[in-house]
């Protein structure tokens, strides 16, 4: 039996970063026992990392459609793990998988999902309080979960994972459940991006509508390469077809948290800011001095990017020798 259950994911033989963040968030609630669901061929290996990272029980699924990442089977596994753990708080992450699995799990359990939370806590009566941005980040809501089971998903990187503690011990239990797959994956196609992966980049250079076309992204790529970073884009630039949709940073794209985020020709609509507002230093270049991006940026230049950017890069080149 556990008080909290994390709906985890396994990547490269280890629990994903958002899984470790979920465990930390559950520990932060001050509950006694934290369980984690780990579906994936490497789940047994991942289980030890999850335990040193704060979990007490790991439910593993090492084969079958759930281990392969089929959403229908993952919902079935999550439902079974919830029942087996007896958890009152079920926490997942707003990842590609979590976006589908967590709401479905919540409705199966007779409640709804507190989605995309930046923080979770308990009130005096033990109700889960979930805080989350709404209206594209223009407002922030806190809700109390009322059902007998509270289901929440965390926005990735809003909680820090715990330092691993090698002395921690826990239990590993293979999970028994029946999977019912109705939506079958026929084909998966990777459209390889160029350079550093956006989600892991320490520097991101993003372009928006203000660039006026696809060609200027070449300059952004040049700057990103100088800094060992990745290129991103606003939804407007993706919808215009200037760059593939995989470049999109924002509410409906990727969430990035680099040390440095350089936004060029991006107005700073809340939909975009939702994906980059946790960057350590945000720099904006935009010709409209009244653009919203300047309310959120640490450093700003109100000017024509076609003039600002080359001079910036030239100076940078000099500084970096």
């Amino acid at each position: 039996m556990a008080d909290a259950l994390i709906i985890g994911e396994v990547a490269g033989g280890a629990p994903s970063s958002s899984t470790m963040e979920g465990i930390a968030a559950a520990r932060g609630l001050g509950v006694r026992q934290v369980a984690v669901l780990l579906p994936g061929a490497d789940a047994a290996t991942a289980a030890s990392a999850a335990i040193t990272g704060g979990a007490d029980i790991a439910y593993t699924v090492v084969d079958g459609p759930a281990a392969d990442g089929e959403f229908d089977a993952l919902v079935d596994a999550a439902q079974a793990a919830t029942a087996q753990s007896g958890a009152r708080y079920v926490i997942g992450a707003k990842t590609l998988t979590g976006r589908d699995v967590m709401p479905r799990l919540a409705f199966r359990l007779g409640t709804a999902l507190a989605s995309d939370c930046s923080a979770v806590s308990l009130d005096d009566s033990g109700r889960l309080i979930a805080t989350r941005p709404v209206y594209g980040g223009n407002a922030e809501a806190s809700v109390a979960c009322l059902g007998s089971v509270a289901v929440a998903s965390l926005r990735p990187k809003s909680v820090d994972a715990l330092e691993p503690d090698a002395s921690r011990t826990g239990e590993v239990q293979p999970l028994a459940f029946e999977a019912n797959v109705r939506t079958r994956v026929l084909e998966r196609v990777e459209e390889a991006g160029e350079g550093v992966r956006l989600e892991n980049a320490r520097v991101v250079v993003s372009g928006g509508r203000g660039l006026g076309g696809p060609e200027p992204f070449g300059s952004l790529r040049e700057l990103a390469d100088m800094l060992g970073g990745a290129v991103g884009a606003s939804r407007a630039a993706c919808d215009a077809g200037w760059v593939p949709s995989g470049y999109q940073v924002g509410l409906t794209g990727k969430t990035v948290t680099p040390d440095l985020y350089i936004a060029v020709g991006i107005s700073g609509a809340s939909q975009h800011m939702a994906g980059c507002s946790n960057s350590r230093t945000l720099v904006a270049i935009n010709k409209d001095a009244g653009a919203n991006i300047f309310k959120e940026a640490r450093f700003g230049v109100a000017g024509d990017w076609q003039k600002v950017l080359p001079a910036f890069m030239e100076q940078l080149h000099e500084l970096m020798g």
Binding site: I129, V134, A139, G147, L282, A297, R298
Partner: peptide
């Protein structure tokens, strides 16, 4: 499923 506890404009702490 929920009771709304609060809804407010988020604080922006950035000095530009």
């Amino acid at each position: 499923a929920f009771e709304l506890v609060s809804l407010k404009k988020p604080e922006r702490a950035v000095q530009t």
